[in-house]
């Protein structure tokens, strides 16, 4: 019982650090540190997953932690970095116009998630409830990142941050998902990243930049 209590404290700390990483992602203006922040967040997720597996003695969760570690901490950040060097993408991305309001909005999202999750009484402990709130916030912050940035790489990172939040929520609320689903999701994620890479090449060659705001040829003709 003691170890479970300890684990809850550790998991709460990790969840807060993950939330902090998500906030850092929002206002980051250098593309490499964007990728690093994402890798750190994924590493924290992998740690939390290992801890959970250790407490519950479930091999499926060990496997899930290993999957997170290889895919999101090592493979995907490496792949993105390689793409950036290969495509000679500028390392600086324009600062967002209203960092203050963005962070304020992000804070409002945290409170909103508390409001949504508060009435649910299925959680084993208060700590678990708090962690799920943080996980849900991370999902929404990933979406916010995709909305405020027009850079294609930020979109990929935003999507991956959403996935991190999803895995974290599933880990804490339901002790992960069945193995077959876990594998399917990981496979889809991998294919999605490869497709992102393909798209970077295409976008780069068609608009000569990574700013997807320049993708604006298709719109309604009004004349």
């Amino acid at each position: 019982m003691d170890s479970i209590l300890h684990y809850q404290q550790i998991a709460s700390t990790l969840s807060m650090l993950m939330l902090f990483a998500a906030f850092a992602l929002l206002i980051n203006k250098r593309i490499l540190s964007l990728i690093n922040s994402f890798a750190i967040q994924s590493f924290l997720l992998a740690l939390a997953t290992f801890g959970q597996a250790f407490i519950l003695h479930r091999y499926a969760i060990y496997f899930s932690a290993l999957l997170t570690l290889t895919l999101k901490v090592i493979l995907i950040p490496w792949f993105l970095r390689r793409l950036i060097f290969k495509l000679k993408i500028p390392k600086e991305i324009p600062q967002i116009t209203h960092p203050f309001f963005t962070l304020f909005g992000a804070l409002a999202l945290v409170i909103f998630c508390y409001y949504i999750i508060a009435p649910i009484n299925l959680f084993p402990s208060i700590a678990a409830k708090n962690i799920v709130v943080v996980a849900m916030t991370i999902i929404l912050l990933g979406m916010l990142l995709m909305i405020i940035r027009s850079n294609a790489i930020s979109h990929v990172i935003g999507f991956m941050v959403m996935e991190n939040g999803l895995f974290f929520a599933a880990l804490i609320s339901t002790q992960g998902v069945p193995m077959i689903v876990e594998l399917g999701v990981a496979f889809d994620l991998l294919v999605a990243v490869v497709l992102f890479g393909v798209f970077f090449f295409h976008i780069r060659s068609s608009i000569d930049s990574m700013d997807v705001d320049s993708l604006n040829r298709l719109r309604e003709d009004t004349e």
Binding site: M136, M146, F159, T174, L215, R217
Partner: peptide, 25 residues
């Protein structure tokens, strides 16, 4: 044009479907 269309399709659908995964969970 087609790359733009595919990019929009890709981003919107995978974000949508990530939200659906949360719903499934």
């Amino acid at each position: 044009e087609s790359i733009e269309a595919a990019w929009k399709y890709f981003i919107l659908c995978i974000v949508g479907i990530a939200l659906a995964l949360f719903g499934t969970i």
